[in-house]
């Protein structure tokens, strides 16, 4: 193999390797952005509907509710000042 051909080969090899890594990365980025667009950053307005008309309204004649979640947040006692 001549030195010139070898340089071309090396260049081609590098290009191939670059494409091999770059293509999936670009596709991955695009996929992530698609997901991100589907689930955009917080927009509480989208959950809270000011125009919603509940068919019944929770008044004081109704029982108090206790929500018991399955996931919770937490922090270190120092951070909470405790």
């Amino acid at each position: 193999m001549s030195p010139r051909l070898s340089r071309v080969s090396r260049c081609s090899l590098r290009l191939c390797l670059l494409l091999c890594f770059l293509a999936p990365s670009l596709i991955g980025c695009r996929a992530v952005r698609t997901v991100a667009a589907k689930y955009p950053a917080p927009d509480i307005e989208q959950i809270y509907l000011p125009h919603a008309q509940p068919t019944a309204e929770a008044g004081t004649e109704h029982n108090p509710v206790v929500v018991i979640p399955g996931f919770g947040g937490s922090e270190l006692r120092d951070a909470s000042g405790g």
């Binding site: 309204e57 929770a58 008044g59 004081t60 004649e61 109704h62 029982n63 108090p64 509710v65 206790v66 929500v67 018991i68 979640p69 399955g70 996931f71 919770g72 937490s74």
Partner: peptide, 13 residues
């Protein structure tokens, strides 16, 4: 303020 209360139980999961 006139609604029935809704409490949330926070616990260490």
């Amino acid at each position: 303020p006139e609604g029935a209360p809704c409490f949330v139980f926070s616990y260490d999961w």
